[in-house]
Design a protein around this nucleic acid. Structure first.
Lengths: 230, 230
DNA sequence: ATTTTGCTATTACGGTGTATCGCAACAGTA
DNA sequence: TACTGTTGCGATACACCGTAATAGCAAAAT
């Protein structure tokens, strides 16, 4: 009896693990945004029934948590730099780059406490860079303040980027021309200061805007680290 | 022919406007979070068919936009303070208070450009407070940096608050005991700095943490306003 | 009086997350 | 080897979602 006569062995269920599930979910999100991620589509991409996923996740929110932590692996710098300031800068820029690669990250950033191993590793490396430069409270405040700025800045940048892409126009053009609503509002004269900034302000690209704000915050941190807390 | 003989006049459709729709949506969100807001439930609360809403909004996202702008009305300070720093502080605290009243605001903050009349009014009053204290670019950078911090800080606070409420424990207890995952992670010794902060750090209440970080950022702004830009 | 128009209400479609449950393949025992 | 208990997978089912299409109907226009 040759191989050809014997039937195929019964199809074993596709092997599965969290890594594969998360990878599929991230691929979907990268292609179509967070809203394109459904358990059914993730399962379909793995040639598996939707219910199968519940062995590895117990809720969709947990899948999002795993996705975020996976991205934190991209954010974690491979080598620890010497200077605390550089450490924070690198973390910030790597986070921003990750968000540009995975815009859906902006929707999740700061939305839930991040307790995954990679997020913890990032937190560890950040705290380690500042450890000993001031008392615990000050260091913690420093990290939290920079993190808050980071979350907000990344969110805004991605939000603006989406708005621009939706209209296919540059930020300035979008504000002036394609946002007839905004133009109309500004022309009412009820927002003189705002109008001045929109019409007379120079357009700065997102990266330098991000970096400048970050530097300001880091300057503030530097000042507090230098002097012991009040 | 008495009144009793005459039939009731035909029931006119319930009068509707955006204000009523938004109010119903906000009530729903206040009670059950953003996820409790569905067009069907909003409509039901107004004794109206779901499709009726599409005369006033064309998508659910637009309803969210309206909700956010409605909250900006609560944020807008009634009188303009003299000092720019005080203006930014007041805005920040009013935003935070609004988010504590309407936790779902944290989910939406920074998620989309805010172009509603109330949001514009807040932007106007903020820019007006800083207008003339430096060149346009610097002022814009200042507002954006503070706003980014504000978004991130509010988001984190609400996220932590939810996590605590979910377990019914204080933040510290949640981290130490009820977060067995975190404890286990920290006990691996892979996160020494993080462990030190979690175990030895003092617990600071959310408000002072928020205020302190804000003051740091404002200090940075003050420094840049004092000195003309590089 | 009749036609047109502009809302309104109903129905329907294609999706969602997840609880429930029957079944088939395996492990262990007699 | 036969049987039985267990485990985990898949299909089915439920309740709900946003919204497109459509049918109905009262007011306005002719």
């Amino acid at each position: 009896m040759t191989v050809w006569d014997r039937p195929e062995p019964p199809t074993r269920p596709a092997p599965l693990d969290r890594a594969r599930i998360v990878a599929a979910a991230i691929a979907l999100a990268d292609e179509g945004g967070l809203e394109a991620v459904s358990l059914r589509k993730v399962a379909a991409r793995l040639d598996v029934g939707p219910m199968r996923l519940y062995g590895y996740i117990s809720t969709k929110e947990e899948l999002f948590d795993l996705m975020v932590d996976e991205v934190y692996a991209e954010i974690l710098p491979e080598e620890q730099p010497g200077d605390w300031r550089e450490a924070l800068q690198i973390r910030a820029h790597r986070t921003r780059q990750a968000a540009l690669r995975h815009p859906w990250l902006a929707d999740l950033l700061g939305g839930r406490p991040t307790l995954g191993p990679n997020a913890l590793a990032v937190a560890e490396s950040t705290l380690a860079a500042l450890d000993g430069l001031a008392d615990l409270d000050t260091v913690q405040r420093a990290v939290e303040t920079v993190s808050a700025y980071l979350t907000g800045a990344v969110r805004r940048e991605i939000a603006n980027l989406r708005a621009e892409r939706a209209t296919g126009l540059s930020k300035r053009d979008w504000q002036r021309a394609s946002g007839p609503h905004l133009s109309r509002m500004l022309d009412t004269g009820r927002f003189p200061a705002l109008a001045k900034f929109v019409y007379d302000g120079t357009e700065v690209d997102a990266e330098t805007s991000f970096t400048t704000g970050l530097d300001w915050v880091l300057d503030a941190v530097a000042a507090k680290l230098a002097r012991p807390p009040a």
